[in-house]
Design a protein around this nucleic acid. Sequence first.
DNA 1: CCTCCTGGGTTCGTAAAGCGAACCTTGCTC
DNA 2: GAGCAAGGTTCGCTTTACGAACCCAGGAGG
Lengths: 154, 154
Amino acid sequence: MTDASWDRSRCSVAGTLAVVGEKWSLLVLREAFLGVRRFADLQRNLGAPKAVLTDRLATLVEQGILRREPYQADGERRRHEYRLTPKGVDLHPTLVALMQWGDKHLAEDVAPLALEHRDCGAPVRLELRCDAGHQVSGAREVRPVPRAIPVSPG
Amino acid sequence: MTDASWDRSRCSVAGTLAVVGEKWSLLVLREAFLGVRRFADLQRNLGAPKAVLTDRLATLVEQGILRREPYQADGERRRHEYRLTPKGVDLHPTLVALMQWGDKHLAEDVAPLALEHRDCGAPVRLELRCDAGHQVSGAREVRPVPRAIPVSPG
DNA sequence: CCTCCTGGGTTCGTAAAGCGAACCTTGCTC
DNA sequence: GAGCAAGGTTCGCTTTACGAACCCAGGAGG
């Protein structure tokens, strides 16, 4: 029972999923990180229904994860594109985490997309570290500590 | 157009989301990482409908993320509990990433759950690093490099 | 023995979300 | 002024989520 004694209703995992946990949301953000910004390109790359995509984009804009910016291509009408805000950029590790898991457990041959450090070209990966500088090798080395509104102690 | 030129259908992000992207799946895993293993506890903590929970658990077991293990409590009937497999444990960074984002962007006062290094008690966080040992400060320092089946070059 | 209780489900009917196809609108080119 | 394309909206259908009710096994208690 010990580990159940904190208030799930304000859990950050749940909160984040409430914002980006719907179908397509994270895939839209994947595209955003790949530099895709226009509705039609998103729609083509994702294969999502337009209505759903419209709705997801609106939600992400509303949440401050994307922003809608006007742009003007040569000899074309004024349109707008969707770009990541800093708040959206902060979701990068989440996507990397999902990608790394898929690369390890789903890839049939080789990972379809590599991430490399722009400065040195070396492959990039996510790591857990503590503030004392130790690398944390796995989940078992991490202790979750509830902070808010503990169940009234006996 | 450059960044759109690889095969999304085998994207690891999409693949991972296909496995754990449904509603409740990641929250079930959150509970698993907190040590919750029994159906009734999961149901109580999550507030998910039983039918959905049953279905998610079955999917996660099928996918090799959880395993169903028999156990026997004192003076009770033989039941089974759900435990993370190594494949499931590998989803830890994903949950940490979601949590960190929520802690930063949704928390009203203080993060409801802290993670600390079991050995030294220091707070733990996710970091991007390259194999050359550099810390990668943000998404902009990462270059995505498609590897599979590029569009036939002109 | 019969009933209650509890964990772990299944079965329902309804409400919401996702879906593809069709349609609309704006403003460009021809 | 016809055609086209981006970026949507609308529509009807299918799938999924939902909560409430029910079921089943087995130990406890009378």
